[in-house]
Design a protein around this nucleic acid. Structure first.
Lengths: 353, 353
DNA sequence: TTGTACGCGTTATCAT
DNA sequence: ATGATAACGCGTACAA
């Protein structure tokens, strides 16, 4: 609704110039010539009157809404979504863009319907966010709009995307264990064959390899990526004579299960067993005792990156006639140190360096 | 950007009528008369062409954007935000409204700046969501726009608001314990004097009273409302001869601390001790073992309710000249049963009924 | 250097 | 029962 109807003509009249001049000055039009004195005066009166261009009229005229749509799956089921939204929102604001939100389900039909709805609102571009790192097929209707994927990659690389550096995160997690002197390190992983699973396993192996440690297949055990799965898997890997002194868990929920398994077996953390998780779900990581050292997913940064990429894409979409092929951007996953890692107990092993 | 430039005149030409007629028919204008045959034809061609009114042009003409702004604090720090957003978003979509998001901090200055930004985008109304139930002072700039508060109340009742039924939720939680036969029930609560604290305590007392149980002050102990606080408080209430057989915790994080305290004391859940939490943070409630029975906060429903209320407010804002005084709407908090409640162990007490 | 006038796509008023 | 046209507020080509 129109509350404060202070329009461009008000500014013009007040400053004693034409609307053209006001528009030119406020929009930094190159070709326009106005005396510095005039520029200053116009700026000042605009400021004084609290003038801001009516975005709707401007959008109609410019044929672009300056709105970008954030299409997100399962916004409500994970706290991760909030950070993505936040990152995107913040970046959007810096560019004067407005973020509009649409929740969608993973159902293909819904997605199609929801993207159509979004496009009907004249958004200039869309951010498509999935809550778990995976590959998706781009909805048809998005083919014609600048689009950037968050936490997923398109199967054909036709749009830019940003994903977490799963492998690097896992490498850091296992590295943390190694640096504390652990030589036998278990991996409680999940059973779904998604990029996160593959990447984290790769990081685990690479960290082991770089430290000259052997990969022992019996130390990696997969289960459902929830707390009960973590419990079950941990039990399997811990309830044996040659159990590892360090445990890397696929995510914090599984780590939560590992804590229970350890407790039941009378294994103490971190004195008898060090644990590192993944995801940095603060509710869990800070709630467990001792607090869980884990790896943070760069959700905020992915939201930010995606919006910047989208803005760039919107800029020169004309130039992008050629079907570009994008490599996903990978953002690093920093280690978050808490209390669950210590040096291994000294028993059989010789305390090397 | 304009992709599919199918406008109203295209429909008009194709259907062999004027744009006026098309507009009238598609917008269900009462006063307009058109033959059923024409209506049908217009509708059909619009459908066939995939016509949808340009929202920007419509907004300019109607002087209303059909956008509502969701101003939310700390969107990223709690998973609750997602559910509010989801509820609001869904309700918005049903009314053809678009939700735009702005994150803000709790800093008064930022809030002022952010609301101004929102208003400059011509939103028709705003939803202001806080993440924890409390009282706030309404930002000045919101005085002039239809506004609804979520999870907080304004100090002067000048705008509608919706909050959870803290007392009812607590009553249900404690009632669940009572129904299982518990007579000594502790309350691990928090130290902040917020509506949630007061309401949950009231519910606890009322449930006790209705069951003819006495209120024993030594059974309620307050601490910081995080996991460590829950641990500490639980230890205090459980480490004594006449310890309660049931425990109601202020929230799930504190309940998580209670689990640890119980484990350390060798008290088993639920056979030796039944626990009920509050918040239904699934990460915790489903991750704990045994899974935690708790009370769910109606975040989704609050988002929904707020948007509906806002829509109503926008409808007859002209009629609302008189300074109305609103009572907060309170939405119920349902009990979510999991595995942490059982009948108390039979020892001293005679098994009544 | 500045002002006038048109167009963006709709909806609403008024005439036919 | 239907149609012509002004207006919404801004940006800009073109005239002055």
């Amino acid at each position: 609704m129109a509350r404060k109807t202070v329009g461009i003509r008000d500014v013009a009249r007040e400053a004693g110039v034409s609307v053209t001049t006001v528009s030119h000055i406020l929009n930094d039009v190159e070709s326009a010539r106005a005396s510095d004195e005039t520029r200053e005066r116009v700026r000042a009166t605009a400021e004084r009157l609290g003038y801001g261009a009516n975005r709707i009229a401007r959008s109609l005229r410019r044929q672009q809404s300056e709105m970008i749509g954030l299409l997100s799956e399962e916004i409500a089921t994970t706290p991760h979504a909030g950070r993505i939204i936040l990152g995107a929102q913040q970046a959007a604001r810096e560019r004067g863009l407005t973020l509009v939100l649409i929740n969608t389900s993973r159902n293909q039909l819904d997605i199609q319907r929801d993207t159509d709805a979004l496009l009907r609102q004249q958004v200039d571009g869309v951010l498509y966010a999935t809550m778990y790192h995976r590959e998706i097929a781009l909805p048809r209707s998005l083919q014609s709009v600048p689009t950037v994927l968050i936490d997923s990659t398109s199967d054909d690389g036709s749009v830019p995307s940003v994903v977490p550096d799963e492998e690097g995160g896992a490498y850091a997690a296992v590295g943390e264990l190694i640096q504390h002197g652990h030589r036998r390190i278990g991996f409680v992983t999940n059973i779904d064959d998604v990029p996160a699973t593959r990447g984290r396993l790769a990081g685990y192996r690479r960290a082991l390899g770089d430290a000259g440690l052997e990969f022992d297949e019996s130390l990696v055990v997969a289960e459902q990526s929830e707390t009960p799965g973590g419990y079950k898997a941990s039990l399997a890997v811990l309830d044996r004579a040659d159990r590892p002194s360090g445990l890397f868990c696929y995510n914090d929920r599984m780590a939560m299960g590992a804590y229970r398994a350890a407790a039941e077996l009378g294994i103490r953390i971190p004195s008898d067993l060090s644990i590192v998780g993944f995801d940095n779900q603060e509710l869990i990581a800070e709630g467990l005792y001792p607090a869980l050292t884990t790896v943070a997913l760069p959700h905020f940064e992915m939201g930010e990156w995606a919006l910047d990429a989208l803005a760039a894409l919107m800029q020169d979409d004309a130039a992008t006639e050629a079907v570009a092929s994008y490599e996903p951007a990978v953002l690093s996953c920093p280690l978050v140190r808490r209390q669950s890692v210590a040096a291994p107990a000294e028993d059989g092993a010789s305390s090397s360096d």
